[in-house]
Simulated assay, not measured.
Amino acid sequence: MSGGWIDLSDQRVAVSGGTKGVGAAVVAALLSAGARVATAARTAPNAVPTGVHFMPTDLLSAEGSATFADFALSELGGIDILVNVLGGSDAPGGGYAASTDAVWASEIDRNLMSAVRLDRAFLPGMIERGSGVVIHVTSIQRELPLPESTIAYAAAKAALSTYSKALSKEVSPKGVRVVRVSPGWIETEASVRLAERLAEAEGTDYEGGKRIIMQGLGGIPIGRPARPEEVADLIAFLVSPRAASITGTEYVINGGTVPTA
């Protein structure tokens, strides 16, 4: 998204979970557009991109979120854009019965409360200035849950979507836009490893492993998962001045996976 079409010069951005997958792609896209970026994750990447302010911390905890917020505000002098990417699932297989209270709490902290806490930390400054953008990365699983192992994840993402809509109604009149981005299956590092494991188990190749995942989702009409960079480019547009009248809505990027409008 370089070349001037998206210009985020001097914009100060906080990205949660910005070291892998979609998060890393978002950081790269926003840097390319001229933004100044702070991000956090539990472990540092092999190489922190030049110009990125990185803090290793656990955003699943209230303490970790507060520490990152203090760090980002101190390093950048304020935040104009917040992109809540952090999410995922560590829940075991086995359906509803396998998800203990501890599993539910972990899934909710990762997929809902991490965003709620960072919003609470950064929104006051945006409201005071009368401008800002908050992006919540949700998931098509809020509409298309997979019961084998992601019930808690899907429920937490559904809660994040509802919370985001309510937040947009509260803060949009104060100059802060709130937008949701809802990906389907994305070909991240973790997805590649999953496809490789499935391929090995079924005696097929990587493309065969991808087909197994797509079949489990009920098919992807375009025939492939989204790439992290495609999701990042959508986010870069949505946080830019070119999307200045967009708030309170959800943009789905799933290759047509969900079979209803």
Rank of each mutant, 00 (worst) to 15 (best):
R197K: 12
D101R: 13
V133D: 00
K210F: 00
T67V: 11
A199E: 06
R36V: 08
P49G: 09
S240M: 07
S16W: 00
S89G: 10
A243F: 11
L8H: 09
S168A: 15
D70Y: 03
T162Y: 03
L86W: 00
A166C: 13
S32W: 00
Y206P: 09
A158F: 02
A24N: 02
I213K: 08
V22H: 00
G3E: 09
L160G: 02
T100K: 12
G21L: 00
P56S: 13
S191E: 15
A29K: 04
E148Y: 15
S172D: 03
L31I: 05
E250S: 12
V48R: 07
L73H: 12
E230C: 12
V52E: 00
G216F: 05
A41T: 07
T247G: 13
G255W: 00
A97F: 10
A28G: 09
I222S: 08
A69S: 11
G94P: 12
A66V: 01
L160S: 06
M214Q: 14
V178Q: 03
Y153N: 11
R110L: 15
R120D: 15
E200P: 05
A199M: 05
R193F: 03
A158V: 05
E170Y: 08
A199R: 05
V178T: 10
A98T: 09
V192R: 15
L112C: 10
E128Y: 05
S191L: 02
A91V: 10
A41I: 01
A155R: 03
S9D: 09
A102N: 10
E187A: 12
A41P: 09
A261C: 04
S172R: 05
R110E: 01
E202M: 11
L238G: 08
E107D: 15
G216I: 07
S106P: 00
F71H: 12
P259T: 10
I79N: 01
V258G: 04
S74L: 06
D80M: 05
K210V: 08
N254K: 01
R177S: 11
V13L: 04
T204R: 08
L167T: 03
V258P: 07
G218H: 11
V179S: 03
R12M: 06
L31A: 06
G203L: 02
W185E: 05
V181F: 05
P183D: 03
A33K: 04
P45G: 06
A232C: 11
T138M: 01
E230G: 11
G184R: 01
T162E: 06
K157T: 07
A41Q: 01
D58P: 12
E207N: 12
T67Y: 00
S2C: 04
L59A: 09
R193V: 12
I235H: 06
D10A: 13
R117T: 09
Y206C: 06
I220R: 02
A28P: 06
T162P: 00
L112D: 01
S245Q: 13
I108L: 15
P173A: 11
G219P: 12
I186S: 03
G216T: 09
A33R: 05
